[in-house]
Design a protein around this nucleic acid. Structure first.
Ligand SMILES: Nc1ccn([C@H]2C[C@H](O)[C@@H](COP(=O)(O)OP(=O)(O)OP(=O)(O)O)O2)c(=O)n1
Ligand SMILES: [Mg+2]
Length: 855
DNA sequence: ATCCTCCCCTAC
DNA sequence: TAAGGTAGGGGAGGAT
């Protein structure tokens, strides 16, 4: 529990009515589905931008324009949008504008005379951002671009000439808003129209640059037109996190092209190898697998209870029928089967509401280290850490991260999550041992097997950690032996501890309390190798000296916020604050959770049967992704698609600054406009998207794909989290593997993309894609085209569209058939549950960042 | 009021 | 060399 981040894993308070996956984007036909602020591009067509470079060779851009135009029409029902084909009002010639305004503001903008110039909604090219409100993330995104306030347009139009944009530079009011996602600067239109005098330009910019954005991208990063919140420094501030200066050896080695060719993402099996060595990937996989196992066990228990068959003495864990222990290096839990002994799932039914629960939080002590020490007894009582770097690798400067540290090591100040370099500074004699993922898996299954024996309900938290509701077990023990034991919960916990120790050779610690939060606190006191029953009378005494970040779900950032807004991070002090104060400082839900937590209250139920709601695979690459050309990029994309969904971002370990990450979302549909789990479909879409952005592959530092709003197709028996939806191969290969279900994206998932801001090109914002009507990868069937909107398109675009339709009418494009309109699209037949949110996808990539000298 | 989108935050 | 993945809670503020 000493790792850097925090105590525990579980989230506070589930959010009741929410039906959508968190990161999902929903589809809607309404023009308001732009999200907010709505992003719409006004492109003045007359300029030289009307060339192929801008619109690319792809029809995506055209379609995007079509959609935006249509939406614009819908939004401004009463405003004529007909294009004026002449040259009056041409003061905006050559200017492409990316509007980042709320809907209201947008309408406002449309009412201006400039709108009567030909307004083209360009997807791929912009010269200016227009906005009056930006979130911190957008500030980062736009920081190399010309960001102006709407008055620039308004007043230019009024003046009949293009005023210098530098007089209208947008800059967020004051410092960056610390609170997440909250816009910085003005929010309302009122403040716009009220003619605030334009602030004097912060930066002088050569007027010529406006006409030649491309050349700009070659010059050193342009000065910021917005205040830079320097957000990445926040990451570096997180205590103990293994950010650091560059690893010199790594830098040297990266400079060698041969080495890079062999070891970076260029290698065809890069992703697989990366995952194989990623402890965090394993943790995530295991967690999902364990949750599934528990869920299956519960369903089985309920079924058996109903059928009245209770073979109380059968094995609690067994190999699934036909499960071949593939090899000795099977790190997956897929072939195991847990059995829940007591078939009682407290489903909140008439289950004595007032009964005090008994919750146990069971957690291995320094799990990875303990596991490693089972075969290295000679290292017991030494400062031992688990990390990749072994022996003297990396020397004194190894950036290898420590996954787990023994308690002896912790006495030197070493913590989980630190870099080996930091650890060596604290304790030069620290001993490193390697990862043994398969062993962790085996031990974990033993651990869970034992827990299941006593659990009324069980929530898998992690490979080494579980929350167990033992209320009834304790109750019945008390009934059987009322007097001989004074704390039946503690006695049961001791039994569990001993059983786990006997089965695994490792120590678990167990915290016991009446709710989850307190049980976790109790575990802190129990460690190492101990038990602690936190009883009601002791709660305040135990809680008061703690800091807010000692509570699960409250971390570094919340602590800083509390210190700033409430003057203290100490629970005893915070207890004096009113609920209103806490809510004001931290938000309503968080404030209330905290208010209760401080008082030892936590109403959350164990989460043992919630199905997964999204799938994504992330890779953070330190130095792995370095493409030389598009071919390599393509290869990688398809690898990723095969692997499923994945996202990447980049925080460089090599000491060259942080890359910027972007994400965009677009509709993804299979060839036939249907849901798909096919890796080729996903790869195709992702690759096209990426291609359309036309950036330098050398700048690429990460790519990601993620799919959300999953809909179950088939049984509920899904397992392997990352692989499930996208590796149908798995099912065929290992029929015993029990992956007969697939989660299939319904209709068109979305993929999100975003361009390098360095290129001064801003791509279509995800939300501008009307997914209900278009896949964003293709144009709609001709019959679906809104004639008015179509006619309003500039001639060049219209021509291209016409050509395309013409072409298709002659020879259908097998590659790219127009998707069936949504309302006619056959729904994917879904067996099992009826949760029907559509699936969406998000694609990420990261650009920039330097790497040693060659970058 | 409630939903949705785009974020941020947390945890192992 | 080292392999910083991943799912979900929750807040702000616009749309409905
Ligand atoms: N930053 C981290 C934190 C944890 N882990 C892995 C290794 C840990 O052994 C395992 C369990 O995490 P715990 O938080 O339970 O930490 P430990 O079990 O190592 O120590 P303890 O539980 O005794 O505090 O997860 C990791 O790889 N990286
Ligand atoms: Mg542990």
């Amino acid at each position: 529990m000493e790792h850097t981040n925090n105590v525990s894993n579980e989230q506070p308070i589930s959010s009741g009515a929410r039906t959508n996956a968190k990161r999902s984007r929903s589809r809607s036909e309404s023009p308001e589905d732009l999200g907010q602020p709505s992003k719409t591009t006004l492109h003045h067509l007359n300029g030289p931008e009307t060339n192929a470079e801008i619109y690319g060779a792809s029809h995506f851009g055209q379609w995007g324009e079509y959609m935006q135009r249509k939406r614009a029409k819908l939004q401004i029902q009463n405003t004529s949008l007909e294009s004026t084909s002449d040259e009056k009002n041409d003061i905006f010639r050559g200017i492409s504008i990316y509007s980042y305004l709320s809907k209201k503001s947008l309408v406002f903008a449309f009412q201006f005379p400039i709108i009567h110039a030909r307004v083209i909604l360009s997807v791929y090219h912009r010269t200016h951002i227009i906005t009056c409100s930006l979130t911190p993330a957008k500030i980062r995104e736009f920081k190399h671009m010309k960001v102006v306030r709407p008055e620039w347009l308004v007043e230019s139009a009024a003046a009949g000439t293009l005023l210098p944009w530098t007089d209208y530079i947008f800059h967020p009011g004051g410092r960056a808003e610390p609170s997440q996602g909250s816009p910085v600067g003005q929010t309302t239109l009122k403040s716009i129209s009220r003619s605030t005098p334009p602030p004097s330009p912060q930066v002088q910019v050569n007027r010529n640059e406006m006409e030649d954005p491309v050349s700009r991208s070659k010059s050193p990063p342009s000065p910021l037109y917005t205040t830079d919140p320097a957000t990445y420094e926040d990451a570096a501030r997180v205590p103990g996190y293994a950010l650091g200066r560059s690893n010199e050896m790594a830098e040297r080695v990266m400079a060698d092209p041969q080495w890079r060719a062999a070891h970076t993402s260029i290698a065809p099996d890069f992703i697989e190898g990366y995952y194989k060595n990623s402890r965090l990937h394993h943790l995530s996989m295991w967690k999902a697998e364990l949750r599934n196992l528990v869920m299956e066990a519960q369903e089985r228990a309920e079924r058996e209870e109903f059928g009245n068959s209770q073979d109380k003495d059968g094995p609690v864990v067994r190999e699934k029928a036909g499960a071949q222990s593939t090899s000795t290096t099977d790190v997956s839990m897929g072939s195991a089967e847990l059995i829940l002994r007591s078939p009682t799932k407290n489903k909140g039914k008439h289950k004595a509401v007032n009964d005090e629960r008994v919750i146990m939080h069971c957690d291995f002590d320094c799990f990875f280290v303990s596991a490693g020490l089972t075969t290295r007894p000679q290292l017991r009582s030494k400062p031992v850490v688990v990390c990749h770097s072994q022996g003297n690798q990396g020397g004194a400067s190894s950036t290898s991260e420590i996954a787990s540290s023994s308690y002896e090591a912790r006495s030197f100040g070493i913590k989980n999550g630190m870099s080996l370099r930091q650890a060596r500074q604290l304790c030069p004699s620290v001993v490193t041992i390697p990862y043994e993922f398969e062993r962790y898996k085996d031990l974990s299954l033993q651990f869970y097997t034992i827990l299941m024996r006593y659990a009324d309900d069980l929530q898998a938290v992690s490979v080494d950690e579980a929350l167990v509701d033992v209320s009834r077990s304790v109750e019945s023990r008390r009934a059987e032996a009322p007097i001989s034991v004074d704390d039946h919960a503690l006695a049961l916990a001791q039994t569990i501890r001993e059983e786990v120790k006997a089965a695994t050779g490792c120590n678990v610690s167990i915290g016991i309390a009446e709710n989850i939060q307190l049980a976790r606190i109790a575990t802190r006191k129990a460690k190492p190798a101990g038990l602690f029953h936190l009883k009601r009378d002791d709660v305040q005494r135990v809680l008061d000296p703690l800091g807010i970040d000692d509570l699960h779900g409250f971390g570094h950032s919340t602590r800083e916020k509390a210190k700033e807004k409430l003057g203290t991070a100490n629970l005893g002090e915070l207890a004096k604050k009113s609920k209103g104060q806490l809510c004001e400082a931290l938000g309503k839900g968080t404030g209330e959770t905290l208010y209760k937590a401080i008082r030892g209250i936590d109403d959350r139920k164990l989460e043992s049967d919630k199905p997964r709601r999204s799938v994504s695979c992330d890779i953070n690459i330190k130095y792995g992704v370095r493409f030389e050309n598009n071919e390599q990029t393509e290869t990688f994309i398809y690898q990723m698609a095969e692997e499923v969904a994945r996202r990447m971002h980049n925080i460089s370990f090599l000491g060259h600054g942080i890359c910027e990450t972007f994400n965009k979302q677009i509709a993804l549909s299979s060839i036939h406009g249907q849901a798909t789990s096919d890796s080729k479909d996903i790869g195709d879409h992702a690759w096209k998207l990426l291609l359309s952005f036309n950036f330098d592959p050398k700048e690429l530092r990460g790519i990601g794909i993620q799919i959300q709003k999953l809909e179950k197709a088939g049984t509920v028996e899904s397992t392997a989290q990352a692989r499930l939806p996208f590796q149908p191969v798995l099912r065929h290969k290992t029929p015993d593997h029990k992956v007969e279900s697939m989660e299939i994206p319904t209709e068109h998932p979305q993929i999100v993309v975003q361009p390098p801001s360095q290129e001064m090109v801003l791509l279509q914002e995800n939300s501008t894609v009307n997914a209900e009507e278009a896949s964003a990868h293709d144009i709609p069937p001709f019959s679906q085209v809104d004639r008015d909107v179509f006619d309003a398109l500039p001639e060049s675009i219209r021509k291209e569209l016409e050509n395309e339709y013409e072409r298709r009418s002659k020879s259908p494009v097998p590659d790219n058939p127009p998707p069936v309109p949504a309302e006619r699209r056959p729904r994917i037949p879904v067996k099992g549950t009826t949760t029907d949110p559509p699936v969406w996808g998000t694609m990420w990539w990261a650009l920039g960042g330097k790497i040693s000298s060659d970058d």
